[in-house]
Design a protein around this nucleic acid. Structure first.
Lengths: 236, 236
DNA sequence: CCAAAAGTGTTCTGAATACACCCATGA
DNA sequence: TCATGGGTGTATTCAGAACACTTTTGG
């Protein structure tokens, strides 16, 4: 292994990008910002940016960019590293590698106020991934990977609850699964499956009755993080 | 998103490291090199190094380092990105982030000849991960993640065959599972499960009879890459 | 009372487990 | 022929799928 200092270190800029997914308005949506300058001027892009200094950790940079560009609080969200993208020509100006993160956010009460988040907006993933929709850099590929990560994690973790507000009903949780997977699930078997996982949900001791019909039990997130056995996607 | 050129880009060196796993001598082993200089002089480390130029892709750098430091041919191996490690103090000399790859290699016929691979040697993972074993940088953590990746992938992919030579028996394949998972599996149920996955194995039309006992069918890798349904680890 | 949503019970089916048993070889 | 490992058959168990049915509300 050559040592730094012994040779010319290639000039590589290190960035972080964020794929913030949320379930909103009946569809899976992703937080995008509008690019103000070339390249890809005026096109939607993932929030992100370069390391602020040589001593900033990758996780800190991700949390900072999330807060700066979308006004969301990283401490309240589940942030995890997705993958690093480093094709030499992914930025036409210079060599950039970007360490990407995924975050899973509940539906936002206010449409993201404050901060530098002027341009941040939610876009349906389905629309973003359409072949004719133009997205900056290789961000479409990143979004595809992020969505696949979310889909896979629903199977064996309690991640779905991260898409829900602090208190929610079984139907809301089921809709998260249905929307992220794009599959209808049997409400009755779903109910049984979820309640059989110890610690996934804890009853809030309340009931909610918005529509006609029997009122639903209100739940909060429980301490469990993994599902055993997993809830596998129906193989369509 | 700030733009490169608008501000001072922090000086960050980008490296790739490789966790080359193999099943050898009845245990899961990993390719390590010996560090010749400080820091961590004389300690085992993962093979790896810095990007050769600003135009070298991450995948190419990984393949190049694999070949340079171990003499293995990346084209013949399954190489996949694991994760990026970028704690600010992981290298005491300067800021380094390292994009790590995992590779899965069959047991090596010759103990890795040629190339710059003078110091490359296999070490049992069990030994490497012992608390008292000292490993350079944060490489112990990386190795733990790589092993967990391998364990998980055996469940839902045909990766195990990548640990086997081109032709192998059902027992050799089962031993891969047993060694990587550290669990005994029932040979009879294993046989049925594997043969029921279309395209996992294709019979080579031969039989092998090294020990007393009925000769085993010899197989080659088939075209399948995923397992449906998955083969789950016994929950011990 | 009726429609609608929440939740329970029951049956059926597919897959994992456990293990009895047969097969084919070397010594 | 016997020990040894390869491979098949089969009963049991467990979990998911399908769906009838009960419960509890709004209108």
């Amino acid at each position: 292994m050559p040592e730094p200092g012994e040779w010319t270190i290639p000039e590589v800029a290190v960035a972080v990008d964020l794929a913030v997914l949320t379930v909103h308005d009946g569809s899976l949506q992703i937080m995008m910002v509008n690019r103000g300058i070339p390249p890809y001027e005026g096109m939607p892009a993932l929030p992100g940016g370069f390391l602020a200094s040589a001593s900033e950790s990758l996780d800190d940079a991700a949390a900072r960019e999330l807060s700066e560009e979308t006004g969301l609080d990283a401490a309240a969200l589940h942030l995890e590293q997705l993958r690093t993208y480093g094709t030499p020509d992914r930025d036409p100006r210079r060599r950039v590698i970007t360490v990407c993160y995924v975050a899973f956010s509940p539906g936002l009460p206010e449409p993201v106020a404050g901060g530098d988040a002027r341009d941040a907006k939610l876009m349906p993933v389905e629309k973003v991934l359409k072949p004719r929709t133009r997205i900056a850099f290789d961000h479409k590929k990143i979004i595809r990977d992020a969505v696949e990560r979310a889909r896979a994690k629903l199977e064996y973790t309690t991640l779905a609850a991260a898409f829900c507000p602090p208190e929610f009903t079984m139907t809301e949780l089921r809709e998260v699964y249905e929307i992220v997977w794009g599959q209808r699930l049997d409400p009755r078997n779903f109910h049984r499956k979820i309640t059989s996982v110890a610690g996934f949900l804890v009853p809030a001791g309340k009931r909610e009755s918005k529509q006609p019909g029997r009122p639903a039990t209100v739940y909060r997130r429980g301490p469990a993080t993994t599902l055993h056995p997993a809830m596998l996607r129906p193989r369509a």
